[in-house]
Every structure is written in C-alpha cells, then in structure tokens.
C-alpha cells in the first residue's frame, strides 16, 4: 500500500516528466482536461489539469472532472512513477478510468510517451 504522500510524489514526477517534454506539450495544446485521481484503499484524492499544453496538479478532488482515474494506491503510485504501464491494470480491472473512450486512449498514449522518452 502506498501513502497519500507517495502518490503526490509520483504525480509530481509525472507532471515534471510531461512538462519537460516540449513535444508532448505541443501534442496536447488542444486538449484541456481535468483528471481526478482517486484511490480505493486509502483516503486520497488528487487533480491533474491539462491546459494549453501545460500540466499541473494539486491535492484534493475536482469539481467537474472530465476523466476519473480510480485504482489502489500502490497501482497509482507505480503507474505515475512509470514503473508499470496503465494498459495491464486497465485490462485486468485494477485500474478504472471513467470518461470518453477517446480521452482514455489519449491519456494512455500520453503516459506511454512520458515514460518512454
């Protein structure tokens, strides 16, 4: 089980990985989305906001998320640190993503491009 702080740190690494990648920022200039990250096993909520190609995040839930990412704390921390890809937990049901299918595919691509760079 990961702690709230570990998830925060993993999201920090994820956001840094994203924001230091100019190509990813270019790719996502058109994609303004609020993504809520919730855990199933501990009290923890975070919000990611993609706006004009920039990614920022904060602790706490979102008012009107476009996407909600839901998993146990360990999976979330591993995924945002890039230790595991989102595909496997998504396919086996450990990770649930609520939102449009187009947005889910796009988020998957972004995660793969961040940690593959």
């Amino acid at each position: 089980m990961a702690t709230h702080q570990e998830i925060t740190d993993s999201l920090k690494a994820f956001a840094e990985g994203y924001n230091s990648n100019k190509r990813l920022q270019t790719m996502n200039r058109d994609w303004n989305r609020v993504i809520q990250v919730l855990t199933t096993d501990i009290e923890s909520a975070h919000t990611l906001e993609l706006k004009d190609g920039e990614l920022r995040f904060w602790e706490g839930a979102a008012d009107k998320p476009d996407l909600t990412v839901l998993a146990d704390s360990e999976t979330l921390a591993d995924m945002f640190y890039g230790d595991i890809t989102p595909t496997e937990p998504y396919m086996n049901g450990t990770l649930k993503i609520m939102g449009s299918e187009d947005d889910i595919v796009r988020l998957d691509f972004i995660s793969l491009l961040i940690w593959g760079e």
Binding site: T87, E88, M91, V105, D108, L112
Partner: peptide, 8 residues
C-alpha cells in the same frame, strides 16, 4: 506506444 496499445 505500440507494445502496450496492441493489448487494448
């Protein structure tokens, strides 16, 4: 991307 995307 493809090594993972092909699993979807």
């Amino acid at each position: 991307t493809l090594p993972e995307m092909v699993k979807l």
